[in-house]
């Protein structure tokens, strides 16, 4: 499958934090195998010489919402799971993942004719955002049911846009790493780790539990990074290749090896400076057991946590190529 097709396929699956089954199963189908973990993740092992173990991690969960309150007659109030910006929600189709299956609905916005002038354009918070499921089997909806935005991915010129590319783009890079490794020699046993529960923001239970279990020699965490200008920092840009992280939470030697490897193989790359926490699974994996050396590689992504996240498939491929070469060239 092409990288573009993989991105579209994985963006189309719903897997809000804690409810990632569909994504794990989809990836297992694509890879043709893999073991599910206790916290809902998926591990796919690529045999090496058995002398050492490396894990590469991407999280399969996406931001989502939940039904917080019934307003009666098919209307519901919502709250966020992970960093959902309520500004993105008005005028969206949504899916409610109920125990009886998917119930469709919309988040509407009052027509401008009925909106007082001072309220036009005014940002709504979650307690003002209403899910309208009157057109569906709304009696099946219970408080606590998860809600995701119902949006299909599309091509945007040479790029791909859609929801949940954070971090399905990372998942695709793992799948592609497997393909690149098929053409290379390597000693490491390689574990592709598709972990859960990253977006709720603390402790990385999905990734760190797997890192503990696998007892790795080293690991790479692949996530996405903000491709907008952040004041005081160099801008990570779409189409400029993987962003190789440097900072106190990232192993210095692994960083240097990654940069050397990128240069040696002509892989366009960027250096992302992370002077504090990285806000990814990196920290959780790093703290597994008595410590695991980690490298963070990020795929630049525009409009993070919106239904129209944008990535360049070339960046995803180059991320995979870099990881495959690094694994091949790291000495056991």
């Amino acid at each position: 499958m092409t990288t573009e097709k993989l991105l579209m396929e994985l963006s189309s699956v719903d897997g809000p934090t804690g409810y990632e089954d569909a994504v794990a199963e989809k990836i297992r189908e694509i890879l043709g195998g893999g073991e599910r973990t206790k916290l809902g993740g998926l591990i796919y092992k690529i045999e090496g010489s058995g002398k050492g173990r490396v894990g590469i991690f991407a999280h399969i969960d996406e931001i989502g919402m939940l039904v917080s309150k019934k307003a009666g007659n098919g209307f519901f109030y919502l709250d966020t799971v992970g960093g959902v910006d309520p500004k993105l929600l008005p005028s969206s189709k949504v899916k409610v993942l109920t125990k009886k299956g998917v119930v469709r609905g919309v988040i509407g916005i009052i027509a401008p004719h009925l909106t007082p002038p001072e309220k036009k354009g005014k940002v709504q918070e979650f307690d003002e955002i209403v899910l309208d499921a009157t057109m569906s089997d709304w009696q099946s909806i219970e408080v606590g049911d998860r809600v995701v935005v119902d949006v299909k991915p599309s091509k945007l010129g040479e790029l791909v846009t859609g929801k949940a590319l954070d971090d399905r783009a990372g998942c695709v890079s793992l799948i592609k790493t497997k393909e690149f490794l098929e053409k290379l020699r390597y000693d490491w046993d390689v574990y592709l780790v598709f972990s859960t529960r990253e977006e709720h923001g603390f402790g990385s239970p999905g990734a760190s539990s797997i890192a503990y279990e696998l007892d790795l020699d080293w690991a790479i965490v692949v996530d996405v990074t903000i491709a907008e200008k952040v004041e005081g920092y160099e801008q990570m840009k779409i189409g400029e290749g993987p962003a190789i992280g440097i900072g106190p939470f990232i192993d210095k030697e692994l960083h240097e090896k990654a940069v050397e490897t990128a240069k040696r193989h002509g892989i366009k790359h960027q250096i992302e400076v992370l002077p504090m926490r990285t806000g990814t699974d990196n920290e959780g994996v790093r703290a597994a057991r008595t410590g695991t050396r980690t490298l963070l590689i990020s795929i630049p992504l525009k409009y993070m946590h919106t239904p129209v996240e944008v990535v360049d498939p070339k960046d995803v491929e180059e991320t995979a190529r870099l990881m495959a070469h690094l694994i091949s060239e790291m000495e056991v």
């Binding site: 960093g83 959902v84 910006d85 500004k87 993105l88 008005p90 005028s91 969206s92 916005i109 354009g121 005014k122 940002v123 709504q124 949006v151 599309s154 091509k155 945007l156 846009t161 903000i226 907008e228 806000g279 525009k302 409009y303 993070m304 946590h305 919106t306 239904p307 129209v308 944008v310």
Partner: peptide, 23 residues
């Protein structure tokens, strides 16, 4: 407010109205 994070068709070209990440 209705167009933030939405897809639009600009002539025959697809476009998106992105938004600054919440982060």
């Amino acid at each position: 407010r209705v167009v933030v994070g939405k897809t639009l068709k600009v002539g025959d070209t697809l476009g998106v109205v992105g938004y600054k990440p919440i982060h």
